[in-house]
Amino acid sequence: MALMELRDVSMTFEIGGGLFAPKRYVQAVVHANLLIDEGDILALVGESGCGKTTLGRIITGLQKPTSGEVLFRGKNIWKISREEFRQYRLGVQIVHQDSFAALNPVRTIFHTLSAPMLRHGIAKNRQEAWEKAADLLRTMGLTPPEVFLDEKYPHQLSGGQRQRVVLARAVSVQPRLIVADEPVSMVDVSLRLALLDLMAKLNRELNIAFVYITHDLATARYFAQKGKIAVMYLGQIVETGPLGKVLNRPRHPYLQALLTAVPVPDPELTRKHFELPLRTMDMPDPTSPPPGCRFHTRCPYYEPICTTEVPVLKSIGNGHKVACHLEHKIPEWQPLDAEV
């Protein structure tokens, strides 16, 4: 049984609408299917506004999808008993992008770490909570822990340290899955790898599954080497599969465009670089997405069918799935970097 499964999940937001003003709708997620097993790593990749954060929030149960099922260990989380929901609640944690906003500014680090442990009986008293918190901080590489537990407030820590505290808090309730929403994008570049390594260590040693949400293909490639990838465009998952396979042989024009946009640190290669001629750089208005394939307004290969029929994810072998009518016609993408 899968740890976490999304079946045909869609999320539509209402925006605007005063007492008299008309309402508009945004489809943030459209018919998404995902499967996450114990200890899996899934990279969820897409531009900002593509619905990847919403999908993450649906996985953590912060948002109830407008349709579809969210299953935790085979049970729909919106239909289970209170006790089962509590199990799920603790089982799936979230790590936010902005570590400063993720920590209560007027509460000490110790309070932030101890409150959930005390609440759920993981620690029986403040004494025990202190010791557990210290252990957690040591695991996160924040040593000596006393320095951080002793009347320290979030603003007194560096961005990297804060993000480690956030991770420690998530791990403190012994979760099975952590949804990490752009966890390193606000951290100094030099510290990003260390944080990703820490998350990989948690995955390896504690067997915690990760959903890594990012717009950055490079860090996705680094963190989810052995995991899976799902690429989103305007609320739809357009391509998914084992990360290595998908990135080596991208089939969806959108993913090809994304890969082309990744800078390569070699002037020779960049010069030869084959530009994927997108028809426009502008994202369509999400309140009125284009009919048919949502990418057709920008797709260089589009044909009449793309403007009328919505493509569905089709398997092309080895767990690799693509949602594109013209998958068989689209030329192979040339990797620029020989190492990939």
Binding site: R86, L90, I94, A102, N104, P105, A115, P116, R119, V173
Partner: peptide, 24 residues
């Protein structure tokens, strides 16, 4: 996010209101 995190951590609504929001 810190309120969202508190919800995900299963902290009670009373805790969130009085212990997380009020001090702010």
């Amino acid at each position: 996010e810190f309120i969202e995190a508190a919800r995900v951590l299963g902290l009670s609504t009373t805790h969130i209101i009085f212990s997380e929001m009020m001090p702010n």
